[in-house]
Write a protein that binds this DNA or RNA. Structure first.
Lengths: 179, 179
DNA sequence: CCTTGCCATGCAACTAGTTGCATGGGTACG
DNA sequence: CGTACCCATGCAACTAGTTGCATGGCAAGG
């Protein structure tokens, strides 16, 4: 399970509440790991029990206490252990590819492909803007930012690939049905 | 859930036992959907209860009956319905990207990246061999094979992208630490 | 003052997927 | 004759992730 490790990475950069983490998972970290707030709270509780994070509690009246989590030494150790083990190949699961393979309704698939293409373009724009802003000179990325930079590059390459695939699909399915 | 739909697509091509399906999920369909035999048997049972597939039972002595599943009209309808609905963007979850982002141990990551690169190369070779064998002329792919062809193209593009990403990572992490 | 939206937490019920185990026949090789 | 490998099915226990719901403060704008 890597949600725990994604949280640890995020806490290494900056201590945070569950809510903060959920927002980070909607942004930067969310480029390669999605998580709902429910799952984050659940996981944080388990991680605290395991001693990987520690919480500073700020009591609030009338509502639940605010808990800010920080990574512990045990958490850092666990992160190192995790980094050392070979990462399993991602189980790729694509509803879209299943549909495409079935090709039950060309019109519906063309429509879906256009939607996906637009989504890829939108994300690519965001990633590229982020890259330009944070790392204007790719050859001069600071040591401690290199991981984040390379992860972002993965996002960029992945979106570009998605666009190229959509273009191939549209080319094959549109122009041919027009003829 | 698309495992059900992946099974339906597979059964559209050819009726099969759970065991057959498990092997298909280790090969062609497995390019974009993985499933263990346990999960396939469980899902087939549910699909039969839902009337999407029907089983022909061949009794065997001493061991469990052999069941060959075929898609039903209701199954075909469900597949059409599924194709018509927009496919959700895949939740991308990458242990590797999490590790990379953390960048806790450069040596370990370089090693892991090399392993991943080799895996991508191996898969790319397989996919390209498969493409060459089944679709020697991409412009002359038969109508009913177009979906499978385009899905395979997705696999090819995806592996190429993976290799390119690994190369970037290795370039940044290796040459720089050598200096 | 009321609504909208952000800050902040969490439970409960469910679905999907993984891991480990169990059974047993047939066929091919040494 | 043993062993290994393919064919074939499935249960049980567990882990991860989703969906829906509930609570409540505080600030800004109309």
């Amino acid at each position: 399970m890597a949600l725990e490790h994604a949280i640890l990475v995020s806490l290494t950069e900056q201590a945070a509440t569950g809510y903060d983490l959920a927002r980070r998972f909607d942004a930067s970290i969310g480029y390669f790991w999605r998580a709902s707030h429910q799952q984050i709270y659940k996981t944080l509780a388990r991680m605290e029990a395991d001693g990987w994070v520690s919480a500073t509690i700020e009591p609030r009246e009338g509502t639940a206490d605010k808990k800010t989590y920080a990574i512990t030494d045990a958490g850092r150790e666990e992160l190192t252990r995790f980094t050392a083990e070979p990462s399993p190949r991602e189980a790729l699961r694509s509803d879209f590819a299943v549909k495409l393979r079935g090709l039950a309704d060309v019109t519906a698939i063309v429509e879906d492909t256009r939607r996906r293409r637009a989504d890829h373009v939108e994300r690519l724009d965001r990633y590229e803007a982020s890259a330009k802003r944070h790392y204007p000179d790719p050859d001069a990325v600071e040591e401690r930012e290199r991981g984040a930079y390379l992860a972002l590059r993965g996002g960029i390459l992945s979106e570009r690939m998605g666009i190229a695939w959509c273009d191939e699909i549209l080319d094959q399915l549109e122009t041919r049905s027009d003829r």
